[in-house]
Amino acid sequence: MTTLGAVFRPDNPPERLRDVVRAADDSGLEELWLWEDCFQEGAIATVAAALAWSERVRIGVGVLPVPLRSVALTAMEIATLERLFPGRAIWGIGHGVQDWMGQVGARVASPVTLLREYLDALRGLLAGERITVKGRYIHLDDVALDWPPVTAPPIFAAATGPRTLHLVGEAADGVILTSSTPADRIRAAVDVIRTARPETAARQPYPVIVYLAAATGPGAAERLAARLRADTGDPIPDVGVAGDAHAIADCVARWTEAGATSVILEPTADDPDPAAFVRFVAEQVRPLVP
C-alpha cells in the first residue's frame, strides 16, 4: 500500500503548526512532514512539539542538513525523542542546500564524503555502539549514548545526483526525493539504488519517499504554476498536480508505479489554509489511493 502524507511548509510561521498537527491527527493522516530550511524553523524543536501535540500521526523530518549539526548532537536528540515517542518519528538527513551551507560557514569540499561518514556514525550511535572514528569530517573519540533508543530507528537520506543516490542506497535505510523529481527520474533513482544494494533489492522494497507538489481549491492551477515557475522557470514541467482529489490521486498512482513507496503531498507556500490541506489529503485523497 502506498503511504500518503503531507508537508507543513516552514514558510508558515511556527505558531500555525499546532492547528495543522491536530488536523492531521484528527483526520487520520498517516504522515506529516516538517522541513529544516534555512533560515526558518528548526526541525528538532518543531518535531518535538508536533509529537507532543499528537497521538498517532507519524512526524517526518525531511531533512536535517548534516553540515549544520554535530553527529553526536543529532544522535542525542533523535535518541531522546525516540525514547519519549517510540516509533512516531521518521528521520531524514541530507547535504543541505549548498548556498545556505556557505552562508553559515558550513559548506564542505566533499558533501558526499561527509554524508557517508555521518550516516555510518549516526546509525552506529543510535544502535548503541561505542564509536571511535577519525574521518575526513567526522571525529569521535570513544563516544556512546547513555540513552540510546530501545530500537534504533531507520535513517533516510535525501539524494538527487547518481553519486549520492548510490551512497544512500548503500548506507541509508531509504531515500527521499524532492518534488522536482518526475516519474522517469524516480525510475532512474530506483535503478541506481538497486545496483547499490543488490543483496536486498530482490527481497524487500527499499523505501522511496517522494514529495509531490500539489494544489487544490480556488486558484490551484495558478498557484502551482507560479510555484513551479519560481523553482524551475517552467510553469508546466512533468512535476506537480493541481485539481480535485481524483486528479491528485491519479498523479500519486503514477508516482507509485514509477517506484515511490511513500508520496508526500507538498502544498504551495501560499496555500490559504494548511490545516484544511492536510484534512483534504487524509479525507478525500487517501480513500482514492490503493
Rank of each mutant, 00 (worst) to 15 (best):
R136K: 10
L34D: 04
Y118A: 04
A23F: 12
I131C: 01
G135T: 04
A79K: 05
G60P: 00
R123S: 10
P13N: 06
L114M: 09
T46R: 13
P10F: 01
A72N: 06
G124Y: 11
L126G: 06
A106N: 10
D120L: 10
R116T: 13
R130I: 06
R116P: 02
G94F: 13
V47E: 01
V71E: 01
E41G: 02
L81A: 02
L84E: 11
D19N: 11
V104I: 15
V57N: 00
R116M: 05
T132R: 08
H95A: 14
L73P: 01
A109Q: 13
Y137L: 07
R130T: 14
D19V: 07
E31I: 15
R130A: 08
L29K: 07
A48N: 08
R116K: 14
W33M: 03
G42W: 04
F39P: 01
V104F: 15
P14H: 06
V112I: 15
V71Q: 01
R56H: 15
L68A: 06
A72H: 07
R56Q: 13
A50P: 06
I93D: 03
G42E: 13
A89W: 01
G28A: 12
G42N: 14
E55K: 14
L32C: 11
H95V: 12
A52K: 09
T46L: 09
R58F: 02
Q40V: 08
L68R: 15
L32F: 13
G87L: 09
T132K: 07
R16F: 13
R16L: 14
R18C: 02
E30W: 08
G102R: 14
W33H: 07
L73I: 14
D146Q: 07
Q98D: 09
L125C: 04
R18M: 00
G96Q: 12
G94R: 11
W53P: 06
I93V: 15
T46I: 02
V20D: 04
T46G: 04
L17K: 03
V133G: 00
W91Y: 14
R56G: 11
S70N: 15
Q103F: 11
S54Y: 14
D99M: 10
A144R: 12
R136L: 03
E41L: 13
I93H: 12
V66I: 14
G62W: 00
V63Y: 09
P14N: 02
P10L: 05
I78A: 08
D99C: 00
G87V: 13
R88V: 05
I93K: 09
G62K: 04
T132Q: 02
P65K: 00
R107C: 00
R130M: 06
I44L: 13
I138T: 12
G135K: 07
H139W: 08
A52P: 02
R69W: 15
G42R: 10
L122Y: 11
E30V: 10
W35S: 01
K134P: 00
L126H: 05
G96I: 09
T80A: 12
E129W: 03
R88T: 05
V47W: 02
A49V: 03
A75C: 07
G60M: 00
D99R: 14
R123C: 03
V71H: 00
G94Y: 12
Q103N: 10
D11A: 12
L64F: 13
E129T: 04
Q103I: 06
L73W: 13
